[in-house]
């Protein structure tokens, strides 16, 4: 049965909790939404609902981590990465404590709650914190890997999840590697580097482009930090044109990270960043928001054509 990303997260967290008694889970009164409540039901003594107090929650996680626990901090991505930012900076980044920051409802997935609840700058914010790893998952199998990775890797990290259903790209149990992107479709005219739900839109765009004789390569860059700079440069070398796609503003997120890698790698190729154009969205049905704000397959197809026009 198909499950939403948040349910996949809740299940994975529970399974890891059964195997590892050091895992503790904190939530800020949204455990029914983040699905951390699944862990609470089985392990109430290792679950701490701090009320609507994200800064306190994140700082409490530092105490748990320093005493040998693996704390998972849960709330909406928009709040974990804002109200939780100061303790994340002091304790996860500066102090290198193994705090696991879980951003539920990434991107516009909390569609009807509107821009106050959309997380559209979380990747830029968290990526800027020294030493903090950043991931954005694209399907259920990858979500399960990410949770397991958070338990096994001592690094502090931020994982962007989603409220919604994402189509599957991987078989259950698919092996992922930290810092290694996944090549989902080969192609020689253009490369689309995407994360999260935009991976699905990138694949759909590649199909549409293929019908027009344009061969598009699609890369799932779930590992935003560490970024797979090698894969980015390979995209540039093999196609000579790059489009990035993310449910995020075009500033400082995946698109920014890819441009940094291209510049530093000396790749001189045209790039178009698909994302929110330095603006907030509004409330409404998820799919309609994605279309109106230029975050879907149609926007990617247009971006590819624009980029190919600039290709030498």
């Amino acid at each position: 049965m198909k499950i939403a990303i948040r349910e996949a997260y809740g299940q994975a967290l529970l399974e890891c909790g059964r195997e590892n008694g050091d895992i503790v889970v904190l939530d800020a009164d949204v455990s029914g939404s983040t699905k951390s409540a699944m862990f609470k039901k089985e392990f109430p003594e290792r679950f701490f609902n701090v009320g609507i107090a994200e800064a306190n929650m994140t700082a409490m996680a530092a105490g748990f981590a320093s005493a040998g626990k693996i704390p998972f901090v849960n709330s909406f991505a928009a709040f974990v990465t804002t109200l939780g930012l100061l303790p994340a900076r002091a304790f996860a980044s500066y102090s290198k404590l193994p705090i696991k920051l879980m951003g539920a409802y990434g991107g516009l997935s909390d569609a009807f709650d509107g821009p106050s609840h959309h997380a559209i700058e979380d990747i830029a914010v968290m990526r800027a914190l020294p030493g903090l790893k950043v991931y954005a998952v694209s399907d259920v199998a990858q979500t399960r890997w990410a949770v397991r990775h958070a338990v096994e890797d001592r690094s502090p990290m931020y994982i962007r999840l989603s409220r919604d259903y994402f189509p599957d790209h991987y078989a259950p149990g698919e092996v992922f590697e930290d810092g290694k992107a996944k090549l989902l479709r080969d192609g020689g005219d253009v490369a689309i580097i995407a994360c999260g739900l935009m991976v699905e839109h990138a694949l759909q765009a590649a199909e549409l482009l293929g019908a027009e004789g344009i061969s598009a390569r699609v890369v799932d860059m779930f590992t935003i930090k560490p970024l797979d700079a090698g894969a980015v440069l390979e995209c540039a070398a093999k196609t000579g044109a790059i489009v990035t796609a993310e449910e995020h503003t075009v500033i400082g997120g995946l698109g920014g990270a890819v441009c940094e890698a291209l510049c530093e790698g000396g790749a001189s190729v045209p790039v178009t960043r698909v994302g929110l154009a330095d603006r907030h969205a509004e409330c409404g049905p998820y799919a309609k928001l994605l279309h109106k704000y230029g975050l879907d397959k149609d926007a990617i197809v247009a971006a590819v054509k624009k980029t190919l026009a600039k290709k030498k």
Partner: peptide, 24 residues
Amino acid sequence: ELSTGPLGLGLSAGLGMALALRLD
């Protein structure tokens, strides 16, 4: 035991430590 400087975070972290120690 804790990096401090940005004010207002030590009591939260201390609470986390106290709860972790109680679990153990």
